[in-house]
Amino acid sequence: MATTSVRSTYSLDVETVERIEQLARRWNVSKSEVLRRAVKMADEQSAVSDRLAALKELQESMQMTPEKEAAWVAEIRAERDAHVMAWEKP
């Protein structure tokens, strides 16, 4: 399956261009591949940050304290243990 490519022009500072060239040599890939990987990694990190921020917001909205968290974890573990034991019974 052919990959579609789009040619683009960007203005980069000298330090960034040097870093791209160094990475291309180190990874033994083209400068375009370095940019593709960098964009992909930045996007993935951003997605993880977004999910962590959402979790933090949820915990804050629930006024989650270490004590509440411990109680919640204990409750979930008990439910899981009860469910597993029910399946283990003949």
Rank of each mutant, 00 (worst) to 15 (best):
A2E: 08
T3E: 13
S5T: 05
V6I: 14
V6W: 03
V6P: 01
R7E: 03
R7C: 06
T9W: 03
T9Q: 10
T9N: 15
Y10V: 15
Y10R: 12
S11K: 13
D13E: 14
V14P: 14
E15W: 06
T16S: 15
T16F: 13
I20F: 08
Q22L: 12
L23E: 02
A24M: 05
R25A: 15
R26F: 04
W27L: 12
W27S: 03
S30H: 04
K31Q: 15
E33H: 07
R36S: 05
A38W: 03
V39W: 05
K40L: 12
M41C: 09
M41L: 13
A42I: 07
D43T: 08
E44V: 04
Q45V: 06
Q45C: 12
A47N: 03
V48Q: 14
S49E: 07
S49N: 15
S49G: 05
A53G: 02
K56F: 04
K56D: 15
E57G: 05
E57A: 14
L58V: 03
L58D: 09
L58G: 07
Q59M: 14
S61E: 11
S61R: 13
S61T: 07
Q63R: 10
Q63Y: 04
T65K: 02
P66S: 11
P66G: 14
W72G: 04
E75R: 09
I76E: 11
R80M: 09
D81Y: 00
H83E: 07
V84P: 01
M85T: 06
A86P: 01
E88M: 13
P90C: 01
